[in-house]
Design a binder for these strands. Structure first.
Length: 442
DNA sequence: GCATGCGGGTTCG
DNA sequence: CGAACCCGCATGC
């Protein structure tokens, strides 16, 4: 299921034909893109105006609104990722990649909290992927489409998804009532000799299940020509892969095609869409392959520009830093993806997927079909380490997704049916593998 | 409480 | 003038 080179060319032609600042954006778009949860580098996408994720300008990167004094184009800039300043490693080299709070106040508060793994101080790695400034994303509603353009390549690991961060809060609340009397901080007992401070153990950032699991970054990536944008436009496949094991490809292949900023915008029609007016029929809900307009050459350029094989400044600070020249164009994460996890259209083709697709299949191309609607439902069902943590040695496709079986975790009510010991174990990532072995037997 | 969007204002190159 | 950023406000969940 790989795209022929000529397909790339034709898509590129279509894609590069516009810039977010253009007075007029193309309206003769034949095919829209699947929603991209982790847009990176200088990419553009055209989404259906009915794509809910696009309507909400979602991204799994922590993007904050940036005032560009242009009401027609929404601009957002990346906040980076919150890491442990001690660069601690959890089991199997897992690193702490928390999602920066979008709200300034909440972010300041967040940085005063402690690493959930070692109780060390947290620090924010700012995004400097766009000429030293944060990567910016631009959204513009125009006609039947939502145009997206990204400028800059993220020079930091992926944070938790929004869904994960929200799930953490939910877990925190549950945890406060369920485990507060029996455990101080399960994480600390093993990974750190430090004692948690009163009041800290209950903070959401101090909960153990908070890091984004990205050791999978370090894969040999030799499918640079067959990356994310070759994903067949099958919703069910996306869903299946997402929900089975979340493999993310951080980069798309790019054809060297310089972006040209066409200057200030003055004549844009604001086409604000109201979320909720969603039809489930129509061509727009059958998006095409995501389009890409630049090439891996840009990545090399990026590497030259930054002077690093990986992201600037972080290699030394973060030995576990997932981006290296060899591995950078792709990355894996089992982290529950924010947009994907909400998608309840569960596939029946799981076995087909297992048989026919490479396990390292990108999943960031998403259907825009109301993916985020059931987020909390999935939060609570999918947040346990047994579901979220991926162990690299296992074949992800040996575990097929079965909505209410193997990957169906206890719901909010039933999960607390576990006895106290098991309950606490689920809160201790060190035991997550044990729990993984236990839980499917239930 | 926090995410999100808007818009006034400031600073800098 | 554009870009980045700060801030307050409003809204919604």
């Amino acid at each position: 299921m790989t795209m022929e080179p000529e397909d790339f060319v034709s898509q590129n032609r279509e894609t590069v034909s516009w810039d977010i600042n253009d007075m007029k954006l193309p309206q003769d778009v034949k095919t829209t893109d699947w929603f991209q949860e982790w847009p990176d580098s200088y990419v553009k996408h055209i989404y259906s105006s009915e794509d809910r994720n696009a309507q909400r300008h979602l991204s799994s990167w922590a993007m904050r609104n940036t005032n560009n004094h242009n009401s027609r184009i929404l601009k957002k800039s990346c906040l980076g990722v919150v890491v442990c300043s001690h660069d601690c490693s959890a089991e199997q080299g897992r690193k702490i990649y928390l999602r920066p709070a979008i709200c300034d106040k909440a972010r300041q508060k967040q940085q005063r909290k402690r690493c959930p793994n070692c109780n060390g101080p947290l620090k924010l790695i700012p995004c400097r992927g766009h000429g030293g400034f944060p990567v910016t994303n631009f959204w513009r509603h125009d006609g039947r489409f939502i145009f997206f353009q990204s400028k800059g390549a993220h020079d930091h690991p992926r944070p938790e998804t929004k869904l994960e961060a929200e799930a953490r809060r939910s877990m925190q609340k549950s945890n406060m009532t369920s485990c507060s009397s029996s455990i101080a901080s399960p994480k600390l007992k093993k990974n750190s000799g430090t004692k948690s401070l009163p009041g800290e153990t209950q903070s959401q950032e101090s909960l153990p299940l908070t890091w984004s699991y990205q050791e999978g970054f370090q894969l040999p990536c030799n499918f640079n020509g067959h990356l994310i944008d070759n994903m067949p436009p099958k919703k069910s496949l996306n869903n299946c892969l997402s929900l089975t094991k979340n493999y993310y490809f951080g980069r798309t292949p790019q054809l060297a095609e310089p972006l040209v900023d066409s200057g200030p915008t003055k004549f844009y029609e604001k086409c604000k869409l109201t979320a909720g007016r969603i039809s489930t029929s129509g061509e727009l809900l059958q998006p095409s392959l995501p389009r890409v307009y630049s090439d891996y050459g840009d990545l090399q350029k990026w590497n030259r520009n930054t002077g690093l094989g990986g992201p600037p400044d972080h290699d030394n600070c973060y030995p576990g830093y997932p981006f290296s020249l060899a591995s950078w164009p792709c990355e894996l994460s089992p982290a529950l993806s924010c947009m994907e996890a909400g998608n309840q259209q569960l596939p029946s083709e799981t076995s087909v997927v297992k048989a026919n697709y490479h396990p390292f299949r990108p999943t960031s191309a998403l259907s825009g079909n109301d993916l985020y609607e059931e987020k909390l439902h999935m939060d609570l069902n999918g947040y346990f380490p047994s579901a979220r943590y991926h162990f690299p040695q296992e074949d992800p496709f040996l575990l097929s997704y079965t909505p209410h079986h193997q990957y169906s975790l206890p719901d909010k009510g039933s999960k607390w049916d576990l006895d106290e010991e098991v309950k606490c174990m689920t809160l201790d990532h060190d035991n997550s593998e044990t729990f993984l072995n236990i839980y499917p037997l239930r």
